[in-house]
Each structure stands twice: as structure tokens, then as C-alpha cells.
């Protein structure tokens, strides 16, 4: 089975997947790209001309600039917070005794398997005007005004951190697992303090995990839909909700397609350049 001489075998084996993908992924993606190059008339619908007008509009219009800027800022904040709390949590998990560790891994990572809609709903219940947050602030005497994080940037950030931080934890956890625990013992025996071991031995070896966790969190935030749609609503649009509105409310599909194509390009550009960076930086160090 292993060293087939028949040159056709691998192509035959991959054919079902490749054909299926070509027809049902390639074609729709190309059609979306083409659609983004047509103009749209509110009375006549999609025109048959070829133009970069949609891209010019998205890039030039301050309304869309603001949405892209907000999305980028959101992704950055969420990533930074996920690093700040996800990395220490992964470290704590790796140091718990095995019995507790498996329980808390389940608690911390389990939400990954629960629908994003459910998890965002939980935050909506917290943030809403009649939610817990208001009750607490009123009870503490911060005024009777209902406090609401609904439709705020802070609210979106908190909910997205909650949705995505398990990805950071699992990624860092996986790279912490690969560390030879004796390398930490070796550093202690050479006179390093606990802090030094953490900073100079453990953290650098966890770096690949932190970086790949960051890229996952960043990319998923930048293209997140459900959480911004529920918490941010119409008032705080991000790229994904803006494209959704162009498609399903305004019905300006070509403009929506242009937004989607830009989102895709940005996403791929960020992932690819980040991976290149990580490879260059770590190829010589880690197997």
C-alpha cells in the first residue's frame, strides 16, 4: 500500500474530494469574486458591467472605514485579552494534579462544544438593561440608571473573549505539554528562581502555542458574526454583520460580495504572513 508505483492511485484517492470541492467550493467562490465586480442599481438590480466601484466604495467610504477599523480594533483587543488570561490559565491547568486537571479542562474547554448562540445569549442576559449588571450596580448605589453593556464595544469584547479564549488555552496547553519537565528542573538546579524559570524557560517554549492561539483568536474575531450581531446589533456593526445587512436587508449583493472578498483577503493575508513569521522565528529552534 505504501510505495505504489502506479502514478494514478493518489489522484484517484483524492478525486472525490477534489471534484466535490471544485464544483461546490471553487465555483461559488469564483462567482462571488465576479459578483463583486458588478455594479448594483437599486431599481434595476445587478448590472452586467465590470467595475472596481464596489471596492472603491468600501475602501473610500468613511462608514465602511469605520466598520473595518472597529473590527480590527475588536480583534486586537480580544486577542490581547485572550493572551493575558488564556496563557496563565493554560499554565495553571498544566500544573494542577491530574484529577483536578481533567475536570477543569472539561470546564474550560467544554464551552467550545456549546453553540456560540447559547454562550452569547448568556452574556446578553447579563448585559441587558434588566440584567444582573444593573441589579448589582443599583444595589451598590451607583445610581438607578440601568447599566447596560448591550450594544457596546466593551460588551462585544467580553463576550468574544469568552467565546474564543478556550482556543488560546488549548493551543498553549498543547505546547506546554511538549515541554520536557526536566528542562525546568535543570534550570532550577542551575540556580534559577521560579520567576526566572517561568520567564526564561517555560514561556519561550510555550511561544509557538501562544502565537498560533493568537492567530486563531484574531482571525475568528475578525470574521465573527453571531456575537457581534447579538451584542453589538445594528448600532455597532462589524465587517461580518455589515456584509450580512448588505445581502439580506439592503439586497446590494455586489457590495456585500466586495466586503466578503476583502474580509477573505485580509484573513488569508494575516494568517499567511503570521505563519511565515512564526516559521522563520521558530524553525531553527523547535522540531
Amino acid at each position: 500500500m505504501s510505495t505504489e508505483k502506479t502514478p494514478n492511485t493518489p489522484y484517484l484517492l483524492t478525486a472525490p474530494g477534489v471534484l466535490f470541492f471544485a464544483a461546490l467550493l471553487g465555483a461559488p467562490m469564483i462567482m462571488t469574486l465576479l459578483l463583486s465586480l458588478h455594479s448594483y442599481d437599486f431599481n434595476l438590480g445587478v448590472q452586467s458591467d465590470w467595475t472596481f466601484g464596489n471596492y472603491a466604495e468600501v475602501i473610500g467610504d468613511p462608514y465602511f472605514q469605520k466598520i473595518f477599523g472597529r473590527t480590527f480594533g475588536l480583534a486586537l483587543w480580544v486577542t490581547v485579552i485572550c493572551v493575558a488570561i488564556g496563557v496563565p490559565e493554560a499554565y495553571v491547568l498544566s500544573r494542577l494534579n491530574p484529577r483536578w486537571r481533567s475536570i477543569f479542562l472539561l470546564i474550560v474547554l467544554g464551552p467550545l462544544l456549546i453553540s456560540v448562540v447559547v454562550r452569547t445569549l448568556g452574556w446578553a442576559l447579563f448585559f441587558g438593561g434588566s440584567g444582573i449588571l444593573s441589579m448589582v450596580s443599583q444595589a451598590l448605589g451607583f445610581g438607578d440608571e440601568p447599566v447596560s453593556l448591550m450594544f457596546t464595544f466593551t460588551g462585544m469584547t467580553i463576550a468574544l473573549v469568552h467565546v474564543l479564549v478556550p482556543f488560546m488555552v488549548i493551543s498553549v496547553w498543547a505546547s506546554l505539554q511538549k515541554i520536557d519537565p526536566q528542562s525546568e528542573d535543570a534550570a532550577y538546579s542551575l540556580g534559577a528562581s521560579k520567576m526566572t524559570v517561568l520567564r526564561r524557560i517555560t514561556l519561550p517554549q510555550a511561544m509557538p502555542g501562544i502565537l498560533s492561539g493568537s492567530i486563531i483568536v484574531f482571525a475568528l474575531t475578525a470574521s465573527a458574526f453571531a456575537t457581534p450581531a447579538i451584542i453589538g446589533g445594528r448600532r455597532l456593526k462589524v465587517v461580518a454583520t455589515a456584509a450580512y445587512d448588505e445581502y439580506l436587508s439592503t439586497l446590494n449583493w455586489p457590495l456585500g460580495a466586495a466586503i466578503a472578498v476583502l474580509l477573505l483577503i485580509a484573513n488569508i493575508a494575516i494568517i499567511v504572513s503570521y505563519n511565515k513569521l512564526v516559521e522563520r522565528r521558530f524553525a531553527k529552534v523547535f522540531e
Binding site: D180, Q182, S183, D185, A186, A187, S189, G191, I201, P204, Q205, M207, V285, F286, E287
Partner: peptide, 15 residues
């Protein structure tokens, strides 16, 4: 303690 230890896995710092 200041003792020198050579570990079975060598425990070199890979980075």
C-alpha cells in the same frame, strides 16, 4: 544547592 545535574533526557533548553 548549586549542584550540577545531567538529566536522562539531557533537558537542554530547546530555545
Amino acid at each position: 544547592r548549586g549542584l550540577g545535574i545531567v538529566f536522562q533526557s539531557y533537558a537542554l533548553f530547546p530555545h
